[in-house]
Nucleic acid binder design. Structure first.
Length: 305
DNA sequence: AAGACGAAAGTGGTTGA
DNA sequence: TCAACAACTTTCGTCTT
C-alpha cells in the first residue's frame, strides 16, 4: 500500500518520498518527516494503525471490502424498545437494554481514549527522538499528555498539536533549549498552532513555566557556529550582566543570545557576521543589531567591531 | 563586493477598555 | 470585540571595509 515518488524533502533534501495509503501519510524515507497527512481525505477516525484495529474499527462509510458481514457494523444500540419484529419488550428486558447501552457507551469512550493515547504516544516518541530529547524527558512529556487527556483538553484539537505543545512545555520546564520553530519543523505542526495549544495547556494545567534564560541558547548556537568555549563563556557573562541591568525583559531570548554571541565572537577574534549568527538563531540581522546596540550602550562596552 | 547600519513600513500577538 | 501597543521582520538606501 505504498508508492515511492521522487520529490524533494523540505527538511533533509532527500529525494525519496513515500506515499503511504495505509496510514494516509506522505513522508520522507530519509528523515521520516511527515509532509502531509490524511492524503486520502479520510477523517482521522478512520486512520487504521494495525491489522487488529482494522478489524475492530471498520464501520459504515468505509469501502465494503474492508468489512466482514456482521462485524463492526453496529456501534450503537438503538433507543427504541422494540424487538426485531417491532413487538413490545418486557420491562425487565428494557432495563437490561438500558444497562447495555450505558456500558456500551462507557466502553466506547474508554477505547477511544486508549486509541488516542496509542497514537499520541507514538507521535510523541517520534518527535522527541527527532529533537534528540533523552528518555526521561519523553517520560515527563508522556505524563503531561496523560494529564491533558484526563482533563479533556484535547477535544477539538489535533493530537499532533497537543503533542507538540506538550513537548514544548516540557522543554521550557526543564530548561532545554528548543524553539517552537524547531518543534514545528519535525512535528509538521505550524508554529502558531503550537503556541496556541501551549498557551491553552499552560493555563488549563496551571503550569508554572519560568522565563527562558537566553544563556540556554548559547552553547547550541555556538556549536552551530563552531565557536570555542571561551567565546561561550564570554557570551554568557555578557548575558548575566545584561540581566542584572534589567535589560532583556520583554526581549526575545534568542535575539539576546545571538547578540551576546556576536559580540563575544568579535572580542575573541573569531568574528562571525551578523548574517551567520542570525541564521542559526532564527532571528534577523536587524534584531541582532538592535540587541547589540542596547547591550553595548548599557554595559558600556567600548569595542569596535 | 560584502558587511554593517538604521529608517520606515508591515506583521502577528497581547492587553486593556 | 476592537484599538493601541511592543517586539520583531522585511525592505531598502547608505556608509564602511
Amino acid at each position: 500500500m505504498t508508492e515511492v515518488q521522487t520529490k524533494k524533502c523540505p527538511e533533509c533534501g532527500g529525494k525519496r518520498i513515500i506515499r503511504d495509503y495505509e496510514h494516509g501519510e506522505l513522508l520522507c524515507s530519509d528523515c521520516g518527516l511527515i509532509i502531509a497527512e490524511n492524503i486520502q481525505d479520510l477523517g482521522p477516525e478512520w486512520r487504521v494503525f494495525d491489522a487488529e484495529q482494522k478489524e475492530k474499527k471498520a464501520r459504515g462509510g468505509v469501502p465494503i471490502k474492508y468489512m466482514r458481514p456482521n462485524k463492526g457494523l453496529v456501534t450503537e444500540i438503538d433507543q427504541y424498545n422494540k424487538d426485531s419484529r417491532g413487538g413490545k419488550i418486557s420491562p425487565k428486558r428494557q432495563a437490561q437494554l438500558y444497562r447495555m447501552r450505558k456500558w456500551h457507551k462507557r466502553v466506547s469512550i474508554a477505547t477511544s481514549m486508549e486509541r488516542n493515547l496509542v497514537i499520541a504516544l507514538a507521535e510523541l516518541d517520534r518527535v522527541a527522538s527527532a529533537l534528540g530529547l533523552p528518555d526521561n524527558v519523553k517520560e515527563s512529556a508522556a505524563l503531561l499528555y496523560r494529564r491533558a487527556v484526563k482533563e479533556e483538553l484535547i477535544r477539538g484539537r489535533l493530537i499532533e498539536s497537543v503533542v507538540a505543545a506538550v513537548i514544548y512545555a516540557i522543554c521550557r520546564l526543564q530548561g532545554i533549549p528548543r524553539t517552537r520553530g524547531e518543534i514545528a519543523r519535525v512535528s509538521g505542526v505550524e508554529e502558531k498552532e503550537i503556541g496556541r495549544a501551549y498557551r491553552f495547556l499552560k493555563a488549563e494545567l496551571k503550569l508554572d513555566v519560568p522565563l527562558i534564560d537566553p544563556a540556554q541558547y548559547v552553547p547550541k548556537f555556538a556549536s552551530s557556529l563552531h565557536l570555542g568555549p571561551e567565546v561561550q563563556q564570554e557570551a554568557i557573562k555578557l548575558i548575566r550582566k545584561a540581566l542584572k541591568k534589567g535589560l532583556i525583559s520583554g526581549r526575545g531570548p534568542a535575539g539576546v543570545a545571538a547578540a551576546a554571541l556576536y559580540i563575544a565572537s568579535a572580542m575573541h577574534g573569531e568574528k562571525k557576521t551578523q548574517k551567520e549568527v542570525a541564521e542559526v538563531a532564527g532571528v534577523t540581522e536587524v534584531t541582532i543589531r538592535n540587541r547589540y546596540r542596547e547591550l553595548k550602550k548599557e554595559l558600556g562596552l567600548k569595542i569596535n567591531l
